[in-house]
Design a protein around this nucleic acid. Structure first.
Lengths: 343, 343
DNA sequence: ATGAAAGCGCTAACAG
DNA sequence: CTGTTAGCGCTTTCAT
C-alpha cells in the first residue's frame, strides 16, 4: 500500500487537513508549516489518491476518449492531440476503442460515465437519440459529428474538398474521380457535399467510385477503375489509398502528374509519404483532439453555457515539391562507394 | 449525480449491504430478494462507482498502458491489442503517451501509480534503475524491452530478421543493405543482432545504413544510398520506409523484384500496403498488447510468482502475390465504360 | 439471509 | 492559521 495522507500528517506533526491544504491551497497555511509538510510529502513520495479525492470533490480529473479504432492513424492522431491537451490540464485520459460498433460505443460511454468528468467522442456512429441519452449522463463533446444540442469540433472536410477540386481544375482537369471510403459517417457526407458543390461551380464532371476499404491495397484496383472512367484526376479517401493508386498507375505506365493528378486526404503520418506526384489535403486531426479537450474543459467549468457550441477547424491543401533530384549515370552503374561517409 | 447504491437499496426495500452482495456475490442472498434488487438496479441504470469500490478493495479495475508515441502505428496496434484484452477482463485502460521522453515516461508511470492496478510499459526508454524503482510502486510488464526481474513480452525481431535474410539469400542476393530506424531501443539492437548472425551464417555482405526517421520520405534518399552501395536487397526499418524505397527505385527505373528485393518490417496496417514487389516481416504487435495485459493480470492474481517471466512472440515473414493483373490495351485507350456497374 | 457499523483516503465545512 | 467532524459510495466484518 502506498503512502497515505495520514502518514505524511503524522511525520510532519500536523493534522491531515493541514496536509491537504498545504497541497491544494498553499496560501491557507503558514509558510513554515507548509514547507515542512511539503518536504515530508516529497520525501515520502506522497501522491494524493485521486480516486478518493474524486469521491468527495465530484471531479475525477479523468477525461474519456472514445474512438472507432485506435489503430487507424486518423484516430490515433486525434487521440494524441487529446492526450497532450489533457496532460497540460493535469487530466488523465481513459481510452475506449469502440471497434466501429455503435452498440459497443454506447456501452463504453456508459461504462466510463462514473470515472470520468467528461467524454470526447470521435466520429460517433450511434444515433442522435443514443447520443442525447449518453450526453445526459456525462458531459460530452463530439469530434467530426454534429448532433443537436451537443458541442462539437469539426474538421472542415467540405472545404478541403473544395480546395482539392479547385487545385486540379486549375491544372486543367475536367473530369474528376472520387474514391470514397468505407463508412457512411458525417465527414464522408461532408466531403461529398463539398465535392459536388465545387465541381458544379467549376463546371467539371465528377465520377463517384467506391466505397473502398481505406487501404493501400484498395487503391490498386481503384486505379484501374479510374483509368476506365476517363477521369484525369483522382481524389482519394485517404493517403493510403492514394498511394495505392499511384502505385498501380506507375505499373500501368501512366505518368503522374503529367497524365494524371492524384490527391489524398488526411495528411497525418501518411502526409510524410507524399511523393512528388501526390498532393495532400491535410486534416487537422491532432488539433481537433486538442480542441475537443479544450472545449470539454470549458464545458466542465461553465456548464450549460455551451449547449451547441461548434468549433470548425480548417483543412489545408498541401502541394509538395514537384521535382526529383536527377541521378548521375555514374551511380547507377555499380560502384561500392564510400558508404561509411554516407551513413 | 448518478444513481447510488443507497437509491437502489431504498427502492428495493433492503439495506445497502444486501444490494452490494446481490451484485457481487449473488449466492449469498435469497433468490427472490436478489431478483428484486437486480430488477431495481437495472431499472435505475445503476452502475457501481468503481473509484469508491477501489478505495476499499484496493483494486481499481484499471490498467495503464504507456507508449512512446500513440500516433506511431506500431504502438497504436499494441495499444489496440491491450485494450481488447483488458476489456475482456472488464478492465479499463488508462493511456499515457510519453512522447519518446524517458523523463516523461517515469513521470507518467508515477502519476498513474495510484489509479491503476498495474502498468504495461511499451519499449521503455528509461534506465534499468528507473524501471526497477517504478516497478517497486506498481506491478508492471514490459513490452519489447528486457530488464532484470521484470516480466516482459517480446517480439522476436532477431528471428524476423533471420527469416528476411534467408529469404533474400535464397533469391540469390549476396549483398544486403539494412536501413535502421531512429531509436536505439532494445528491438533495434535485437534486429541488428539477428541480421549480423544470419548474414554471417549465409556468408553474405551487409551494408548498414542509417539511422533514418521511420517515414516514407526517409525511404526516398535511402534508396539512393542503397543503389550507391551496390546492394541488391534492402531490409527497411518499417513498411513505410520500404515503400519510400520502392517509390524512388521506380523513379530511378530499377525493376523490383527482378533487380532489387525490398523487405519491410511491421506488418501492421502498413502490411495492407504491401505491393507485389514488397515483402513484409509481420511483427506481432496486437498479440503483444494482448499478451502483455494477460501477463499483467496473471501477475496481479499471483504476485511474486512471475518475477522475471518472459513471453516471446514469433515474427513472421509474409510474401505477397508476385503478379500484377495485365491490363488489356483497350482500357488504357480512353473509353467512358459502364461505371455504374463497376462501383 | 440480512442489517448495522466501520472504515478505504481524502476534502470541506465548522470551530476554535 | 490549524484541528475536529462529517461524510463521498462502496465493501466487509460482525452481529442478528
Amino acid at each position: 500500500m502506498a503512502v497515505t495522507i495520514h502518514e505524511v500528517a503524522r511525520r510532519a506533526g500536523v493534522s491531515v487537513s493541514t496536509v491537504s491544504r498545504a497541497l491544494a491551497v498553499p496560501d491557507l497555511v503558514r509558510a513554515s508549516t507548509r514547507d515542512r509538510v511539503l518536504a515530508v510529502a516529497d520525501e515520502l513520495g506522497y501522491q494524493p489518491n485521486r480516486a478518493a479525492r474524486g469521491l468527495i470533490t465530484g471531479r475525477t480529473g479523468n477525461i474519456g476518449v472514445v474512438v472507432p479504432d485506435v489503430a487507424n492513424p486518423f484516430f490515433s492522431a486525434v487521440l494524441k492531440g487529446a492526450h497532450a491537451r489533457a496532460r497540460e490540464a493535469q487530466q488523465v485520459v481513459f481510452l475506449a476503442d469502440a471497434a466501429e460498433d455503435p452498440r459497443v460505443e454506447a456501452e463504453l460511454v456508459a461504462a466510463m460515465g462514473k470515472q470520468v468528468d467528461g467524454i470526447v467522442l470521435c466520429s460517433a456512429r450511434m444515433s442522435d437519440e443514443d447520443l442525447e441519452r449518453s450526453a445526459g449522463t456525462t458531459p460530452m463533446v463530439l469530434v467530426n459529428r454534429r448532433s443537436p444540442g451537443l458541442p462539437s469540433v469539426l474538421m472542415d472536410s467540405a472545404d478541403g474538398m473544395r480546395q482539392a477540386v479547385e487545385h486540379v481544375v486549375a491544372l486543367g482537369h475536367r473530369r474528376i474521380a472520387h474514391l470514397s471510403g468505407p463508412v457512411r459517417s458525417w465527414s464522408t457526407a461532408e466531403r461529398l457535399r463539398g465535392l459536388r458543390a465545387a465541381a458544379a461551380a467549376a463546371g467539371v464532371d465528377v465520377v463517384e467510385l467506391g466505397p473502398f476499404p481505406p487501404t493501400f491495397e484498395a487503391g490498386l484496383p481503384a486505379a484501374d477503375l479510374v483509368l476506365a472512367s476517363g477521369a484525369t484526376a483522382v481524389l482519394a479517401y485517404n493517403d493510403l489509398m492514394a498511394l495505392g493508386v499511384l502505385n498501380r498507375l506507375a505499373v500501368r505506365g501512366v505518368v503522374t502528374p503529367a497524365e494524371m493528378s492524384v490527391v489524398g486526404f488526411d495528411g497525418i503520418q501518411m502526409s510524410a509519404m507524399t511523393t512528388p506526384a501526390l498532393t495532400t489535403v491535410a486534416m487537422p486531426t491532432e488539433p481537433a483532439g486538442r480542441a475537443a479537450v479544450d472545449l470539454l474543459l470549458d464545458v466542465l467549468a461553465h456548464p450549460e453555457h455551451h449547449s451547441g457550441a461548434t468549433r470548425t477547424l480548417p483543412s489545408q491543401l498541401v502541394v509538395r515539391s514537384t521535382t526529383v533530384p536527377p541521378l548521375p549515370q555514374a551511380v547507377r552503374a555499380d560502384a561500392p562507394a564510400p558508404l561509411e561517409a554516407l551513413s
